[in-house]
Design a protein around this nucleic acid. Sequence first.
DNA 1: AGTTATTGTCTCAATTTGTGACAATAATAA
DNA 2: TTATTATTGTCACAAATTGAGACAATAACT
Lengths: 232, 232
Amino acid sequence: MKEKEYLPHIAFDSVIFGFSENKLKILIMKYHNTGLFALPGGFVRRDENLNDAVRRGLKERTGLDNIYLEQFYTFGDLTRFKPEVMKTILEASGYDVNEYDWMLNRFISISYYALINYKNKDVVLKPDALSDSCDWYDVQELPALMLDHKQIVEKALQTLRDNLERKLVGVNLLPPLFTMNDLQKVYEAILGEKLRRTTFQRKILGLGILQRHEKQYSGKAHKAPFLYSFKA
Amino acid sequence: MKEKEYLPHIAFDSVIFGFSENKLKILIMKYHNTGLFALPGGFVRRDENLNDAVRRGLKERTGLDNIYLEQFYTFGDLTRFKPEVMKTILEASGYDVNEYDWMLNRFISISYYALINYKNKDVVLKPDALSDSCDWYDVQELPALMLDHKQIVEKALQTLRDNLERKLVGVNLLPPLFTMNDLQKVYEAILGEKLRRTTFQRKILGLGILQRHEKQYSGKAHKAPFLYSFKA
DNA sequence: AGTTATTGTCTCAATTTGTGACAATAATAA
DNA sequence: TTATTATTGTCACAAATTGAGACAATAACT
């Protein structure tokens, strides 16, 4: 990771949302030997579009191409400039800080959120060279995060809520086939409140964006629900 | 404007909205001897918050402090890297390009929109060292803009529309006292469509955010409207 | 065969929004 | 001084949307 490859002072961070067990989750990395938790992020190559850099980072962390991605804010306060934190991380992984001193500079962070299907078999989580792990955490039960990453997550969540109606958020968090109840759970997790079943069903069906499929015997002791997919 | 003062590769652009003659306007600068039009922008000092840099730029261009400001997108494609354009601008103003070669680098642009009261007596528009003019243009009748600035304006407008309900946009574009009709014209200019008078009035009053004042004789040949201000 | 939990659909009430009507009134014209 | 004109504030009713519950249907379990 040579200095000359990357634009200095510019970083990105990704809040990668998944949905499992009726909970919203995000990917968090844990740095070697430090107890520090952080969002997955990275730097922008000099010959690379910003958006492509983020896609590259996502691919490296999750193994997925073609992830749904939305830029939501660029953080540029001086308060996020804490060179000693990055120094600690580098040293804890046995790196020579002198060689990587450009990483101790001030960075602004362009932040994105991504939505992925937790159940997707192609997902292979992979920590980077500085990290022990890259794993799912319940949004409601995050560990303390480094720098302003907690604030970044908050803003991601806020934007996700604001976009919920306008941007078909549900699509990207669910598998190709799902029940109306699955979709409702996604909405409830994002909004943080219970919704009324009948009203929800009427509203979603009214949008005309769902394709109804054959019922599938649910394995549960009650009437089997329809399965749906999103129309192209 | 020395290189060492500023973060390299990082710029900001501002879409500064005003409202006059029932039209949405924005501030556009015209560079010396080039026929090139652009959004007002600037660079971030190494010891300065990103948001403060933008406020500083706004103050320099308009003379105003405390402007309503909203960040909306960061543009980072390689297609916006056209060093010859900046070279032309510098040379046309008689600058030594060698001294300012850092300005010919690739930049990402963090973009903001600002809302100001066009009638505010404190507004003093001031071009920068490279420009002939800094002036209002009707959003619907912009000259050709350099680089991706047209696209930036489009995205600003789109965000402004999306925020119209949620963020009291009207407040910042009008003088302290205004009529219901004034406010309606603002909404119509932003949305690009006529609204129904009675429905609009009922909705706005229903929000409970307006303070009603004494009527003012309007000078027009009809019943005088109430004046309103926004509650603190 | 009966029980249980959940689903799909329907109905009616409550609320919000669309649409026009109408009296009030400030300036202007007669 | 009185009528005319344009626009305002408010109301009333219709149309549409949303809230809330009722109820029959049904897959699996007892």
